[in-house]
Nucleic acid binder design. Structure first.
Lengths: 246, 246
DNA sequence: AAGTGGTCTAGACCACGCG
DNA sequence: GCGTGGTCTAGACCACTTG
């Protein structure tokens, strides 16, 4: 009875730390400014480096910090709004400057994609690799899976081999009538190859946008685009611009 | 010269571990099955517990595992597709069973929301708290910010106090004509109160869906909905159902 | 009370970017 | 070569759930 419980809910140290640093970020740091290094920060707050890192990880997840090995930790700019609205209803690669074709190969779709395509998982499909660039920085890497059935006027050698092959597939795809598309967004972690192209470490959090392109009652193509979760805010608006900047 | 470098690219242990366990999950475990505990797994793989945990964290981020303190680690079911398509163009709370009103209070919007509402940050707004339930489980917690200007026929006492007040605000809002809406999705970490309602730990990854409701050339309301990133896949489709289930 | 995952420590070494 | 963040260890204790 005698003791009044002042700290009834002892919140974790890293959580408290995250909030403290977050507030400091708002008031005492400018975008792009570099923070003291982790060993220094840990010492300053009187915690182990691992605990300090847990706080920084959260802030990076929220897009407020950017950490680069060999360089340091900097204050991140506000997230970029990236338009992924589905209202345009066009095939990938039509009025293009946002996406650039990187490569085209023949291969087989992963199981989950094969199901969406309604294709035997061992069956060979065209795979087009594209990169989305915004303001000079890569924001997304895409794998576009196109069954050979969707682009009959194309040989395997046409489709393969560098950007030219990739563009050939996109061109053939655009000859079909697009009946509709649906799209989903979920959290994922970057595969090794995507991470390399996005200039991130393997496993970093990404937003995975899966789009199914419908034509003639079939799924004509499936796109799996992985967006950097730290720097991107996906926008779907009619009016597009949900600016939160100052 | 003598030694041939077989492991030219030493990938991190936790990464390799993640892949090994991930494959085991596909082949040797059923949904809902509980894994051996972390100390046991770490010993079995010959790594420190922290390293093992790093691998499990990634798998949980990808929605493949579910960990609960005091209980254990279980194999997660495939993510639930949650429809968040914007095509309906309706005010929140119209043909409702997916969302349930929890509470209504008067308060002031956080800075980022105040900017979207074009409202002085100190100005009092109605705040409606809602919970989205899918298949009996909470999947999202929402804060709906409604400036008093948008619902002039409502006193502060009408709006406050439990579910009834919340529903009063929604009802008034529906009297306006909805001109449009736009929406954005980004990664965030759960605030303490959201985490509690979603049955997660504070800071767990969430998908933050911000919706702006436009009426009469103004932003009549802003909704900030946080979805559990581990269990949810947000769908935007015309045809809605992007099922990846077996 | 026992067993689980969650937090935290104090160290060590590694991989990378830059001067 | 030096300083940075990234990985890893071996241990301790805490918070929670369940029998």
């Amino acid at each position: 009875m005698g003791t009044t419980q002042l700290e009834a809910v002892p919140e974790p140290k890293y959580w408290h730390l995250k909030n403290v640093i977050g507030e400091a970020l708002d008031s005492e740091f400018a975008v792009g400014e570099i923070l003291p290094n982790e060993r220094e920060l840990a010492a300053r707050f009187g915690v182990a480096r691992a605990t300090l890192r847990q706080a920084l990880e959260q802030l990076e997840l929220e897009g407020r910090l950017q950490r680069r090995r060999g360089v340091g930790t900097t204050v991140a700019p506000p997230r970029v709004g990236v338009d992924v609205s589905t209202t345009q209803h066009v095939w990938p690669g039509v009025g293009e400057d946002t996406w650039q074709a990187v490569d085209g190969v023949a291969g087989q779709a992963p199981l989950a994609v094969a199901r969406l395509l309604d294709v035997r998982s061992a069956e060979s499909v065209h795979i087009v690799r594209r990169l989305r660039v915004s303001a000079g920085l890569p924001v997304a890497a895409e794998l576009l899976y196109v069954p050979e059935l969707s682009v009959p006027g194309l040989t395997a050698t046409d489709a393969a081999g560098g950007p030219a092959g990739a563009r050939a597939v996109l061109r053939e795809l655009q000859r079909l009538t697009l009946d509709g598309q649906d799209r989903s967004v979920e959290l994922g972690s970057a595969r090794a190859d995507d991470a390399r192209e996005l200039d991130r470490l393997p496993g970093s959090p990404v937003l995975v946008v899966t789009t199914r392109y419908l034509s003639g009652g079939r799924t004509a193509a499936v796109s799996v685009a992985t967006y950097r979760a730290d720097t991107c805010r996906l926008t779907f608006g009619d009016s597009g611009d949900l600016a939160m900047a100052s």
